[in-house]
Simulated assay, not measured.
Amino acid sequence: MKTFLPALVFLITCQVGLAQRGISETGLWSQYFYNAPVAENFRIAGDFQYRTYELADDFQQFIARAAIAYTPKIGTLELHAGYGYFYGEPFGDSDAGTSEHRLHQDIWMDTNAGKTVSIRHRFRFEERFIEDQDFRSRARYTIFVNIDFYKDDQLSKFYLPFWNEVFINGETELRNSTVNRFDRNWSFGGLGYRISPALRAQAGYMREITSNTSKGQLVLSLFQSF
């Protein structure tokens, strides 16, 4: 069972990716994630993101998101409920932007995979309120895998992060269009570095696959705990 979900996600990604039209431009996604305790078993967790269609040009999207996270005293579950603001522009010279207000609920689960490998699962449900569009919902599943290194039983500052996320649309028949049930898939691999116990950085490459296209993204991430 531990290997079934990663293998299934990998096979789906490969099958969908065979039919995609590739986009030659590589985008850049800059991300900052934070979490801070506010009470016993409660935290604020969120992120800011800035995305471009090309490495140094063509704005794509800005994201500001925050959630209340609750960790029960028993077990390995985490429960999140939050809100996000999104503003995006289409590919190319057009500056006609679209804003979105989005609610989300997360269920996080840890898997015991031994000393050198950590595995986390996230199930996310979203309610999307997009400017001048019908209400939409979406389900997302992500598997996060970090591979740690040890020397003389000491944890290295470097680690290898991998993750894969699948997006499934809740509605397919909209007011002026029809969308596929499968929305997109993200696959990431990179290198992480622990700057301090409360701060770490990651850099890597992600492949985004949608119903019609596939595109590469350079992803730079900073994670901070207060």
Rank of each mutant, 00 (worst) to 15 (best):
K73N: 07
G189Y: 12
E208N: 15
R102F: 00
K157N: 14
V117M: 07
D132M: 05
F33H: 09
R43N: 10
L155Q: 14
R65H: 08
I143S: 05
G97K: 08
R128G: 02
I44R: 03
K151C: 04
F158P: 00
F167V: 03
E165A: 07
T178E: 13
R136K: 12
F223Y: 14
V9N: 11
K157R: 15
S24Y: 13
T116F: 12
A139C: 10
G17N: 15
V117P: 02
F149G: 07
R138C: 05
F4A: 13
F162V: 07
Q105N: 08
I130H: 03
D110M: 09
D57E: 12
S137I: 07
D47A: 09
F135L: 04
A201F: 14
K73W: 04
R207C: 09
I209M: 11
I147H: 13
N212L: 13
V166Y: 05
Q60L: 06
N176E: 12
E100K: 11
E100Y: 08
I143A: 07
E126N: 08
A64N: 11
H104P: 02
Y193I: 05
K115T: 03
E78T: 10
T98L: 08
P6T: 07
I68P: 00
H101A: 04
F129N: 11
R21F: 05
F125Q: 09
Q133G: 02
Q224V: 12
I147K: 15
R175W: 10
S214E: 14
A81N: 06
G17F: 00
G46C: 01
T76C: 10
